[in-house]
């Protein structure tokens, strides 16, 4: 059954889900994602922050703005209500100025992720083989070294295991330099669930969970991006 989030987006001829929608979609597939709520006013932002607990992160929400951080649309580690309120107003003003024609829905408020190792997971489609999953370590590993692995959807548990082992940065997950090893099983589960989700949802054209933060106990998607079919 197609998710209501996707049906709604297609109905409004949108091909990019907002971060709040994307996280809801992956969470409904059993993929842990940092709880994120949409604030459409300054008061809303402060109220939500208090509810989920400081420190929080704010990110601009607009279907037209994909690269949020390029336009000052991301602020991390906000400690209290006055900071949150101030950043909310500044962020909205900056976005409206930079993207005068964009439909800006508000700001996503989420709890700051606890420290851990950043990894990336995602899906894109190949013309011959269909949807394929990607796994890699975040930051320089993916950006510069392109240290990533792929598997064709649907994947099995053993494929997920191999994907993780295959990247050169794997020793970091095993706990290099006195760090505790991260919960690799949790990453494997996420990959298998991601495979199930995209396998059952042909409407998804591309997907990024970037970053997923993993520590010795949990793995959680901190940001999610979903592009639907029909976009060019």
């Amino acid at each position: 059954m197609t998710s209501r989030i996707i049906i709604e987006a297609i109905k409004n001829s949108r091909t990019v889900l907002t971060e709040v929608e994307a996280k809801k979609l992956v969470a409904s597939a059993g993929i842990p994602a940092v709880k994120t709520m949409l604030a459409s006013s300054k008061a809303d932002a402060v109220r939500i922050s208090r509810k989920i607990g400081y420190p929080v992160a704010l990110k601009i929400v607009s279907p037209e703005i994909i690269h949020k951080s390029d336009s000052g649309g991301v602020h991390l580690n906000l400690e209290n209500a006055s900071q949150t309120g101030k950043v909310y107003s500044e962020m909205m003003a900056k976005a409206q100025e930079t993207y005068p024609r964009a439909d800006i829905l508000g700001v996503a408020v989420q709890k700051m992720a606890s420290p851990g190792v950043e990894v990336i997971m995602g899906m894109s489609r190949d013309p011959h083989f269909g949807p394929a999953l990607m796994f890699g370590l975040g930051g320089v590993f993916v950006e510069t070294l392109k240290d990533v692995s792929f598997r064709i959807v649907p994947i099995k548990k053993r494929d997920a295991k191999q994907m993780i082992k295959e990247v050169k940065g794997y020793p970091l997950l095993k706990g290099a330099r006195c760090q505790k090893p991260v919960n690799i099983k949790a990453l494997e589960n996420m990959l298998v669930k991601l495979s199930d989700l995209v396998h059952k949802t042909p409407e998804i054209k591309e997907l990024d969970l970037n970053p997923v933060v993993v520590d010795s106990k949990h793995a959680m998607a901190v940001d999610a991006r979903v592009i639907l079919e029909g976009s060019t």
Binding site: G122, D126, M134, V142, R225
Partner: peptide, 22 residues
């Protein structure tokens, strides 16, 4: 050219390699 990170990193040979491994 792709809208996602994953799409921009996905090369033809990597996909063949994945299919062969699986």
């Amino acid at each position: 050219a792709a809208a996602s990170h994953t799409g921009s990193l996905m090369g033809n040979d990597k996909i063949y390699d994945a299919a062969f491994k699986q």
